[in-house]
Design a protein around this nucleic acid. Structure first.
Lengths: 321, 321
DNA sequence: TCAAAAGTGTTATCCTTACACCCATGT
DNA sequence: ACATGGGTGTAAGGATAACACTTTTGA
């Protein structure tokens, strides 16, 4: 941009700008009623790589890294957040790293290339986020007492109440409803309370607190939490689920996909009505004869609505089951 | 696009990472029923500066630059978007610049320090965005015919229809409703149609198409459009307007502020009800005796709701007048 | 007395939610 | 027959939008 609105900057010697930009991808897919994220390496980490001169854009740089590291070609991509860390361990000099994170949606079927990568369920990293079979035991048995203890630990009444308040909002204590979109706040709360520990670099094994979910390298788990929160929020007003579906699918398959992402069950009749009433899908004319029950009509996404959806708020329902 | 696989990167000599990061701020305030943006320099540009080693974080770097260039201390800050340009004019070598843009909300009263900065109304840059006095003439007289012409210019029927479709959605042609949140799409459409021209660097005067709004340097006007769209969307579900209000205010002042941002009028009784019912404000007990009419009760924002609002969707209404 | 702004109340409508129920197929 | 999933209908409740109306001040 015009780099020197003030005159001081001009005097810096060229090439001294010690900044690196890292591109980090949260690649999401759905299969077997589970939401998956693409990881690489033995230690869990997200696909990532530096932004370089010959990348045409941030997005194309990201695509290139992911393709190279995992063999996956990405479709839908959306920027998540950009942040800077003072010094990442492993940098000799104090070099600044800017991390630009992205959410990508894909289908699991795409040929998985490299051997050192694989799909992991979200809920291995965030076991407290899956409420499809009711509130997980973990929350009442472990998180709640530990969070209460964390709140009690402080002496000032105001801060104590503020901690209790935040925990109640985030986890739905004291009769509050569970809100699946608060995934990031929950992770941050647990982090602040010292209940989740991340592996700093390489080396440490992962058995610090296995009940509290698997760790990831550096801040990757936080980025994943950001992605989950964003996606859970987005599926309610933009038809992005279809990026995760095969070309044709039954309405129940679609519903299960949304439920997997949201981590909660939704009401079948209402779901179908809203999908069809918004004309998001059209029948293929064929039926699927899978496991048990009456054959289901197969549907296909109507790509035409994407144009319309760009304007109006096309929404997916999440009414309680 | 095609560059080397993973291992080659390691051999790059240190200090060669030719990347600069720029922080750009869209600082917004409201006064006299007008939404304002803070600009610097003779040519219109947004406050900005490079991210440097001694900045504690991206946000603190941004604060520092804005304070230095304009004398304004920022309160509420929110990240907008990060993007990269191949080569910006003014860079001798092909240096990569990453721009990280932010939206900041403040009160106009804060002492304006530097002399080369000032507040400009949004609508000088986007005259088609202000619908408070009805749909601007500009749209029907100039934009619509030019956009139709732009659509007709192309031969393939499919693309022609797609252009007409996009224009209709964005600007509310063919009986469609006006959607104030589509500010960015509208700007991009006009840009694509060649109806808005930006000043590349310095030098060119601004009278290319004065009816189509003032230009800004580089892509700053696009960033401003992004900020407007984001803010117009956000005021509907988060109580951010209060960041722009003085400590105490009347309900009509509050409504006028929202109207200024949204660029359209809203219904008074409904507005008041929603505000009070959500307990966003409390009476100070005093009244204001300003211009004409019955004295109005003064209110103050209840900061307590910010905690609650972090969870639930506290919303501001935008019902049609 | 009139204009201008502050306020209050009521009603129609739509959307969401919840729930009840029937249909078609394989074992 | 019955389990499993597919599929339809309807009624209650809440939120929104639209509009009508009264009150209080200054000129």
């Amino acid at each position: 941009m015009d780099d020197q609105p003030t005159e001081t900057k001009k005097s810096r010697p060229p090439g001294t700008s010690d900044i690196k930009a890292d591109l980090i991808a949260v690649v999401v897919a759905v299969g077997d009623n589970e939401p998956y994220v693409l990881t690489i390496g033995l230690k869990d980490s997200l696909p990532s790589g530096p932004f370089e001169l010959d990348h045409r854009s941030l997005q194309s740089g990201l695509r290139k890294w992911v393709e190279e590291q995992t063999g996956h070609a990405l479709g839908y991509i959306e920027q998540l957040y950009t942040f800077a860390d003072r010094d990442r361990i492993g940098n000799e000099q104090q070099q600044r790293v800017i991390s630009i994170s992205y959410l990508a949606l894909t289908r699991k079927e795409q040929a998985a290339g490299a051997s050192n990568c694989g799909w992991q369920s979200w809920y291995e990293y965030f076991p407290w986020e899956d409420h499809r079979a009711g509130t997980p035991r973990l929350i009442g048995d472990l998180l709640r007492p530990r969070l209460i203890e964390w709140a009690e630990r402080v002496h000032e009444a105001a801060i104590r109440r503020e901690r209790q308040w935040r925990a109640a909002i985030a986890f739905g204590f004291e009769g509050r409803p569970w809100n699946e979109e608060l995934a990031l706040q929950r992770y941050e709360l647990l982090y602040e309370a010292g209940l989740v520990e991340e592996i700093a670099r390489e080396g440490d094994s992962n058995d610090i607190a296995p009940a509290l979910g698997r760790s990831m390298i550096a801040d990757h788990r936080r980025i994943l939490a950001t992605a989950i929160a964003r996606l859970r929020s987005k599926i309610k007003y933009r038809p992005v689920v279809f990026e995760l579906m095969p070309p044709t699918f039954t309405l129940l398959q679609l519903q299960r996909a949304v439920e997997a992402l949201a981590g909660r069950l939704i009401n079948k009749p209402n779901f179908r009505r809203l999908i069809e009433q918004q004309e998001l899908v059209e029948e293929t004319g064929e039926t699927s004869l899978e496991t048990g029950g009456r054959p289901a009509k197969l549907f296909r996404f109507r790509h035409a609505v994407l144009d319309a959806a760009a304007g109006a708020g096309t929404r997916l329902p999440l009414s309680r089951a």
